[in-house]
């Protein structure tokens, strides 16, 4: 199988290293070959959109770098990066004039322009389509038996459908009722917990600016999953982790113990089921007690 360009983004190369190493390790176990984008930059993290064409330059540079490495697809584990890349890809595919202006800025800085079409994929969709539940099940050495996991998809993994093509391209997950994560967790032997806020927003964008609002959104998600019997919430985005894991203490402080729930990345759980080692899972990096819970439940990494 040909390699896909792997765009980890900034968070995964610093605070959310656990998501980076576990994603790479899980892909390796599943025989999926990744080629990291060299000399990457920040995707824009959704904060530059109001600057018009300038904002497109950042994600477009990443697409152009992938093109320069001769790769036709970019895969991003971070939903914010994925959203920015998908937005640039779909807008520039339809707007030749804007594409010209954006490429003009890249070239003025001596950068490579974005000339072909690069397909943008989210890690979860990539795992689901390129490996899928069967291959995941075949790699399981330590089934996550008895572990009640609530999948949490968040926002930009599918939304809006006219950037990501979710809801239009049948290969992609359902934007209102996604199920890819649930299917993979099920294949890893976990008990998947259905809960009401799987595609609700964690408020991660305003985690510093608006602690109060974010805490309420996080409380709703965490307590909703907990009330349905979840022991752990599985994520696919570092921004969600910033809100639901790192800032969970703030939701607890404002709204009570209902918001206390260990949070992990999907790839950490898959890696645990695959029998990967500590260095590839980094469960201890998570702030909300996932490592202790998984150890107490008898899972070894």
């Amino acid at each position: 199988m040909s390699a896909v360009a792997y765009y980890p983004g900034c968070a995964l190369k610093s605070i959310d290293l656990a998501y980076d190493v576990s994603s790479v390790a899980v892909c390796r176990e599943l025989g999926l070959s990744l080629e990291e984008i060299r000399g990457y930059n920040c995707c824009g993290i959704g904060e530059l959109k109001s600057d018009g064409d300038v904002a497109y330059v950042l994600p477009t540079r990443i697409l152009a770098l992938a093109e320069g490495q001769n790769l036709g697809e970019v895969m991003a584990p971070c939903s914010v990066c994925y959203g920015e890349l998908a937005r640039a890809q779909s807008v520039l595919a339809q707007d030749a004039a804007r594409r010209g202006r954006v490429n003009g800025m890249l070239q003025a800085a001596g950068e490579r322009p974005y000339t072909r079409e690069v397909k943008v994929r989210h890690l979860l969709e990539y795992l689901y389509r390129e490996a899928g539940p069967e291959k995941v099940a075949a790699q399981v050495r330590q089934p996550l038996k008895g572990l009640r996991v609530a999948p949490y998809y968040g926002c930009l993994y599918t939304r809006p459908g006219w950037f990501t093509q979710a809801g239009r391209d049948p290969a992609l997950d359902n934007p209102e009722r996604p199920h890819f994560m649930a299917d993979l967790l099920d294949a890893a032997g976990a008990t998947v917990v259905d809960h009401p806020n799987q595609v609700s927003c964690c408020g991660g964008r305003n985690v510093v600016q608006d602690e109060e609002g974010t805490a309420l959104l996080d409380y709703r998600i965490l307590s909703g999953a907990k009330e349905e019997g979840a022991q752990v919430l599985a994520l696919i985005c570092p921004k969600c982790s910033g809100a639901l894991d790192i800032n969970q203490t703030k939701a607890i402080a404002r709204h009570g113990e209902g918001a206390r729930l260990p949070v992990v990345y999907l790839t950490q759980l898959l890696g645990l089921a695959f029998g990967l080692g500590r260095g590839q899972l980094r469960l201890g990096d998570m702030e909300s007690g996932a490592a202790a819970l998984l150890q107490a439940s008898g899972f070894r990494s």
Binding site: G9, C10, A11, S14, I15, N41, C42, G44, I45, E47, L48, D51, L58, N206, V208, Q209, D210, G242
Partner: peptide, 21 residues
């Protein structure tokens, strides 16, 4: 909070091309 937040994001991303949380 919003003024400072937006300014900080832009300063850092445009300034370095990377996001250091």
């Amino acid at each position: 909070e919003e003024q400072v937040g937006t300014g900080a994001y832009k300063k850092q991303i445009y300034g370095t091309g990377r996001l250091n949380l």
